[in-house]
Amino acid sequence: MSEPCTGSSRHPQPRGAGRLRRARLTAEDAVLGALRWVVIAVAVAVTAGPLLYGISLSLRPFQSVVSEPLNLIPDEITFDSYPTAMAEYGLGGNMWNSLQVALATAALAILFSVLGAYAAVRLRFFGRNAVNVVFLGVYLLPGIVLAVPLFVLLSRIGLTGSLVGLVFVYVAQTVPVALYMLRTYLVAVPSSVEEAAMIDGCGRLALIRRVVLPLALPGVAATALYVFMIAWNEYLFALLFLVADRDRWTVSLGIAQLTEFSVPTTVLMAGSIAITVPVVAGFFLAQRLLVTGLTSGAEKG
């Protein structure tokens, strides 16, 4: 890997070229330096822009959005779209459904994956590698392909249209990711502490609950948040399982269904911002932990 940088010494430059070369370098630096700020500016505008646009529209009356689409800084601010979206269009109830589903998914996925991740990190057991392969496979299987039989099987046993069925599907979809993330956090817990606890007569489950969990708590919280976000944002399975029963809609499904009708865009924007705020806020709170959990392994590249 060090081969390319020895290249310059193998082909030494003639002595006079040094000054010329320095001049070219500074020009290159100047161009790249400017380009760097262009990239940063565009990245910020493109990532934050749509969100700000959504917020701006949600605070304006619909007539003014239609008549003056370029007027992004509202002259008159109205919060009317939010209560309209929540009450009149039923997104409030949908949000409650989403909250229940996402909390249940996060709780179950964490319960399962803490046990699994502990076993994967600390214990040697028969079938460990097979389990890892299966989980990786599940992670890569197309959701839409699984959706067909899940729809059929759940209709057959009468679980479509129920939030319980949805929770189990979400748990199966998120447990592999949660396990992967938790593994990173659990590896960081020193095993000497555990050995000491075991010698003192601590059983395995008590060990996980009293020793490992407290030490890895920030990581566990970040993983829970990530699972919550996946369940809160999910759309495909909600669409397939719940579309017939409006009272059970999750909020993602609710907003997507509303776009099919002539609902004022300001109301849609209010709904979109309302479902975004908890997710983005949670993400910013746990950002550092989430990033290390997600990208661990990248260093090995």
Binding site: T47, L51, Y53, G54, Y235, T259, I275, F283, Q287
Partner: peptide, 15 residues
């Protein structure tokens, strides 16, 4: 820069 990644897909598509 990470905002688009965490944005709910329905909200992002609607916007």
């Amino acid at each position: 820069v990470l905002v688009p990644y965490v944005l709910p897909v329905v909200a992002a598509a609607t916007i």
